[in-house]
């Protein structure tokens, strides 16, 4: 507030106090927005649960009429989907997280400032590409590219179950995981980069002063400080990978099995892609089953985020951020 102009007697304002209405309106709007988020979340959960109940209550015979369930019961159908969702996201994380840490380190500690900035924008730009474009890219560019690699893996390391019986074109869970990895790269990199940039200058300088090389400094100061950031970034990325629909739908030949044949077509499918694939022609109980699988995906993502929060909170005490 600006100081009041000097005057002979104190000015006592008895009328409207400036800002009071504004404060009230603003606090009302923010509280409202906060509550609205909770209401929307609750409404989504309630909608999913209510629509899913018929599927949870139905018996195996009821499911016989639903073509896409191929004669399974609800858990026989949803179980492999959960597995497929988790495994594709896991592959994506295994590829994306080390890559992201590398990129983030390069941007925050190695690259010249100008290059770092440009690169940062570029990575953020990746996040703006719609998933259907990633799907097209996966089909048209990535699949032909990885096909020789996969077939080499299958021929030479085929004795490992992971790599047996590759069949072209490369429409398997591995390709889907790779596409997902590229899709979640931006969000993970951006988050990790921000965390790395916040490493206390003193820690870094202290490390360097003790004679550490740059890599040793990163190991001693940056990585321990950024650990919780890396975990939360990975979980954010996993959240996106779990729910990704279009790209998986386009690059994967789906199947409903639980196994680790990463290079075979028709073995796995993610929940979201499965809903997108069957919803247009589903009716009656079929819709309920799909919504039930959506409810489980909701719980899964919710669970992943909760675990992430828990890890971050637990780690926060040791991170050195304070």
């Amino acid at each position: 507030m600006a100081p009041a102009p000097p005057s002979e007697r104190p000015v006592v304002r008895t009328g409207r106090v400036p800002g009071r209405l504004g404060n009230r309106v603003f606090s009302g709007i923010s509280t409202g927005a906060g509550i609205l988020i909770l209401v929307i979340l609750a409404a989504v959960a309630a909608f999913l649960l209510i629509r899913a109940i018929p599927a949870f209550q139905a018996s195996r015979e009821d499911f016989a009429d639903i073509d896409f369930m191929l004669g399974r019961d609800l858990w026989g159908f949803v179980g492999p989907l959960v597995f497929g969702t988790v495994i594709s996201s896991t592959i994506a994380l295994l590829v994306a997280v080390p890559l992201s840490i590398g990129i983030a380190l390069f941007i925050s500690h190695y690259a010249p400032r100008k290059l770092a900035q440009g690169l940062g924008y570029l990575i953020d730009l990746l996040a703006a590409i719609p998933s259907v474009i990633f799907g097209l890219w996966g089909i048209q560019w990535l699949q032909p590219l990885v096909s020789p690699l996969f077939s080499w893996l299958s021929e030479n390391l085929g004795f490992i179950p992971l790599f047996t019986d590759y069949q072209a074109p490369a429409r398997n869970i591995m390709t889907a995981g790779l596409v997902l990895a590229i899709m979640i790269l931006p969000i993970i990199t951006a988050t990790i980069r921000e965390v790395f940039l916040q490493t206390p200058r003193l820690h870094e300088e202290a490390s360097l002063a003790l004679g550490a090389t740059r890599w040793e400094m990163i190991r001693q100061a940056v990585l321990p400080f950024g650990r919780s950031g890396i975990i939360s970034a990975s979980m954010l990325g996993m959240g996106r990978a779990l729910g990704e629909t279009m790209a998986v739908l386009m690059v994967l030949s789906p199947g409903y099995l639980i196994n680790f044949f990463l290079l075979q077509p028709g073995q796995h499918q993610s929940i979201a892609a499965n809903i997108a694939s069957h919803f247009p022609e589903a009716s009656g109980l079929g819709v309920d089953v799909l919504i039930a699988s959506g409810f489980i995906l909701f719980l899964l993502t919710f669970g992943v985020n909760l675990v992430a929060r828990w890890i971050i909170n637990r780690r926060a005490e040791f991170s050195g951020a304070n």
Partner: peptide
Amino acid sequence: AAGTWPIEGTQSGAQTSGVLEVINGAEGT
């Protein structure tokens, strides 16, 4: 007869264009 393919472990694509992508994607399809 069913609207969903009854055999698992096959190459497949969503919609007609998806199938055409797969067929164009490898010889012998």
